[in-house]
Nucleic acid binder design. Structure first.
Lengths: 204, 204
DNA sequence: GACGATACCAAGCAAGCGCTTGGTTTGTAA
DNA sequence: TTACAAACCAAGCGCTTGCTTGGTATCGTC
């Protein structure tokens, strides 16, 4: 199952919005603006202008501004969880599974969904307590995928450090790439970067 | 030269504010609030209340709210650069220098200056173009310390991955600890965490 | 003890914010 | 053609924001 099919299936189940729907277009622009200026500095007027409607009309689609932020986060986690599951499924050894996870997370951070991923990392403080709990719960499912693979590698003896710590370090290291890595500048491809990460872990 | 002496020397040179001065107290509270709620969600009234003055009185000390943010960042970088220089100076081998850098950065992220460090990572988007350039220039000096040690390790053959990439990964991994690591919960000390990082790099 | 600088207060202004409201257009299906 | 809901507009309300202003304590210095 490739990424396109995964996306279609999620859209069919109404778990993420199609990017050509009104809602999808708004969420994409919202992710872009939230990443560029931050959630607080992005006004509902900015959001409305980005999709060509009046600011008040936003509230026909979402009850509050915060609900837009939450929707960006929730749909992003859903999509990424599905993509990661597929990545693991396609790999044979645990080492390959880890490489696939790293490669896929780099892709989601630096590819199409990169803006939404950055929002996920940087803007969680702008969520209300209730929304935060909701997002965190979804996130736990995502993290479980990683920990499963890392624990298996630990049992194999391929990993010496604590899996939990390693995942946390990887989370930070990979998400940080969004601040410096430019996949379109050809001197370092995403596969190349994945290799470097695996090498750093002694799993090259 | 220990950390206390470094701090005294920087205060004497007027490069950072003494924490018992009015300015120092304000910057400390600002860092706390900026980290807790984010820069945009922190109002000048919040800041003023935290140090027990009226909101208008803030502008006797700083011309704008943004200047407060910049001051938090600038003073933090200055302090940390000095601390890192001392850490490198005290170590003999390059491997020990790297460990000292990691240990010192973990300390600055998770210790007293942790709130300011988090602000440095999360709030740079709230800086104006001009302030950002200023902060980045200071940051370059700090990064040069790391790259010097990593390049030396690469030449020794102790490091296989690209030093530049490794530093970026470490930046992300270490700064991310602020979101999950609790040094006061005794199951993992900062030295223990440093060991884990070194082990992850194959330099344990 | 007069003086100037420093630190602060009390009040409020102009602008921008999220969101509401009442009404109009557009799309869809009988 | 009619009926109705979804999508949107135009206007603006109430509130909060960063910051300003004019004036008052407080302090070290000669």
């Amino acid at each position: 199952m490739n990424q396109e099919k995964i996306l279609q299936s999620l859209i069919a189940d109404n778990l993420v919005s199609a990017s050509d729907s009104a809602r999808g277009r708004l969420l994409r622009e919202a992710a872009r603006l939230f990443r560029e200026k931050g959630y607080e500095r992005t006004t509902v007027r900015d959001l409305a202008a980005a999709v060509g409607i009046q600011s008040g009309s936003l509230f026909h689609h979402f009850r509050t501004k915060e609900e837009i932020l939450k929707a960006v986060m929730v749909e992003t986690i859903r999509l990424n969880t599905a993509v990661m599951e597929a990545a693991i499924g396609a790999a044979k050894s645990n080492r390959e599974k880890l490489r696939a996870l790293i490669r896929a997370e780099l892709e989601s951070i630096n590819g199409q969904t990169g803006e939404a991923m950055a929002v996920l990392v940087y803007e969680w403080r702008s969520l209300s307590e209730a929304s935060r709990a909701e997002v965190l719960e979804l996130r736990d499912g995502y993290e479980a995928l990683w920990l499963g693979v890392l624990n298996a590698l630990k049992e194999e003896g391929a990993l010496s450090a604590d899996p939990f710590v390693v995942r946390r370090m990887l989370t930070g290291a990979l998400s940080w790439t969004v601040t410096w890595y430019r996949p379109d500048r050809g001197d370092l491809t995403q596969d190349g970067l994945t290799d470097q990460v695996m090498a750093m872990l002694g799993l090259g």
